[in-house]
């Protein structure tokens, strides 16, 4: 490529970065604005909306509810996803491709369809909309991701490590817990953080599977329908910061050798 096209591409990249960051930066900025009205001009800045958010007990309970769901669904997804990764990367059997496709199926389902199908399914199973249904919904959505991350990590584990453990007297269960699991741990912690973020941020499943108690995105959505407010900016900014920090930590863990 010529210098010219290279320069253009570089500009496209930075324009893309701006496209990604400007809306979020504006959102954060508006959270500090000393007025109930979202928009320009900004006259002065304040921390008032953050105080309002912290003192809002309802919001705090929504936060806690979302967090409980995120933790529970992540733990379940890690157990099932790791199990699936072990099956797909360590065992040899016919129809592996089909099992892989079935396990990772939720990753390619359009969100609304996944949510509706789970809503109907939980109803037929007698699970009323509420925490259990949301946790299961998020687990279904997160298992493929854990499986893929787990498989990638397992593929880099030398076969001889497991063989050596078995040679020294470990059965498959002991060799999994003492050798393979420690090897997988950094990747699983990283995947777990992303699962928590996904669950915490998920709207469509939480909305259709949830009962009267909203998760945070559902709460923000219902607030938005009545109009914008600087409080939403403040909450969103807090979530943004937490997300970025956790995401960076997870990224580090998953890429570590």
């Amino acid at each position: 490529m010529t210098r010219h096209t290279r320069l253009i591409m570089q500009m496209v990249y930075w324009a893309f970065v701006l496209y990604l960051f400007i809306p979020l930066s504006l959102m954060v900025l508006m959270g500090f604005k000393d007025s109930k009205f979202i928009g320009f001009p900004i006259k002065s800045l304040t921390l008032h909306w953050y105080k309002v958010v912290i003192q809002d007990l309802e919001l705090m309970s929504v936060f806690a509810y979302s967090f409980t769901i995120a933790i529970s669904s992540t733990v379940l997804a890690i157990i099932i996803g790791t199990w699936a990764a072990m099956l797909l990367s360590q065992a040899k059997f016919k129809g592996k491709i089909i099992v892989f496709a079935l396990i990772t199926l939720p990753a390619v389902l359009p969100g609304i369809i996944s949510a509706i199908a789970l809503r109907i399914y939980s109803q037929t199973l007698g699970i009323e909309p509420g925490m259990t249904a949301v946790i299961l919904g998020h687990t279904v959505h997160n298992v493929p991701f854990v499986t893929l991350v787990g498989m990638a990590r397992l593929n880099s584990q030398p076969m001889s490590h497991v063989e050596a453990a078995q040679d020294l007297g470990a059965d498959n269960v002991i060799s999994f817990f003492r050798i393979t699991l420690p090897y997988l741990t950094p990747a699983l912690v990283g995947a777990g953080i992303f699962c928590m973020l996904t669950s915490f941020d998920d709207f469509v499943r939480s909305f259709f599977l949830g009962g009267y108690e909203p998760t945070l995105p559902v709460y923000i959505f219902s607030q938005l329908r009545t109009g914008m407010s600087p409080e939403i900016n403040a909450i969103s900014s807090v979530v943004l910061v937490i997300t970025a920090v956790m995401g960076l930590a997870a990224e580090r863990l998953m890429r570590r050798k």
């Binding site: 001889s160 050596a164 059965d171």
Partner: peptide, 17 residues
Amino acid sequence: PPNRRNVNMVFQDYALF
């Protein structure tokens, strides 16, 4: 299976944990 065989192996890559 290897875990119940009284035979031990030194692996080519040593396979140290």
